[in-house]
Computed example of a mutant assay.
Amino acid sequence: MWKKKMHNRENRSLERLVKPNRFKNLGELQKESTEAGVKASRATTHRRVKELGFSCRIPLVMPLLNHRQHTWAKEKKN
């Protein structure tokens, strides 16, 4: 049996961070929770947010367009 890293007090503080803005990504939640004194990994934070009934998104990083791609996209826009 695994020991839980987060206790009820830490779960409640994480819930207080998630409730006001449900569209925060996992990185922002992890940063705010560590500032609030909750010492847990990113994976643990993700599991706890899901257990509390919220969905937590990991942001998708998209590559920027180079100059040639940008001009092509502008031409195809119309």
Score class of each variant (00 low, 15 high):
Met1Val: 01
Met1Asn: 01
Trp2Ser: 02
Trp2Gly: 02
Lys5Met: 13
Lys5Asp: 10
Lys5Tyr: 14
Met6Pro: 02
His7Ala: 13
Asn8Arg: 10
Asn11Pro: 05
Arg12Tyr: 15
Arg12Leu: 15
Ser13Gln: 15
Ser13Thr: 15
Glu15Tyr: 11
Glu15Thr: 14
Glu15Gln: 15
Arg16Ser: 14
Arg16Ala: 12
Val18Arg: 00
Lys19Asn: 03
Lys19Met: 02
Pro20Leu: 02
Arg22Val: 02
Phe23Met: 13
Lys24Ser: 11
Lys24Thr: 04
Leu26Asn: 09
Gly27His: 04
Glu28Arg: 08
Glu28Ile: 06
Glu28Gln: 11
Leu29Asp: 00
Leu29His: 01
Glu32Arg: 12
Glu32Gly: 03
Glu35Thr: 11
Ala36Asp: 07
Gly37Phe: 12
Gly37Gln: 07
Gly37Val: 10
Gly37Arg: 14
Val38His: 02
Val38Arg: 00
Lys39Trp: 15
Lys39Asn: 15
Lys39His: 15
Ser41Arg: 14
Arg42Ile: 13
Ala43Trp: 12
Ala43Val: 12
Ala43Lys: 12
Thr45Leu: 14
His46Ala: 12
Arg47Trp: 01
Arg48Val: 10
Lys50Leu: 14
Lys50Tyr: 04
Leu52His: 01
Leu52Gln: 02
Gly53Pro: 01
Ser55Pro: 05
Arg57Phe: 10
Ile58Trp: 07
Ile58Ala: 10
Pro59Ile: 07
Leu60Thr: 10
Leu60His: 08
Val61Glu: 09
Val61Arg: 04
Met62Arg: 09
Met62Phe: 06
Met62Ser: 11
Leu65Ala: 08
Asn66Ala: 00
Asn66His: 01
His67Val: 11
Arg68Phe: 02
Arg68Val: 09
His70Cys: 13
His70Lys: 09
Thr71Pro: 00
Trp72Gln: 10
Ala73Thr: 03
Glu75His: 05
Glu75Asp: 08
Lys76Cys: 02
Lys76Val: 00
Lys77Trp: 07
Lys77Arg: 12
Asn78Val: 03
Asn78Cys: 07
Asn78Asp: 04
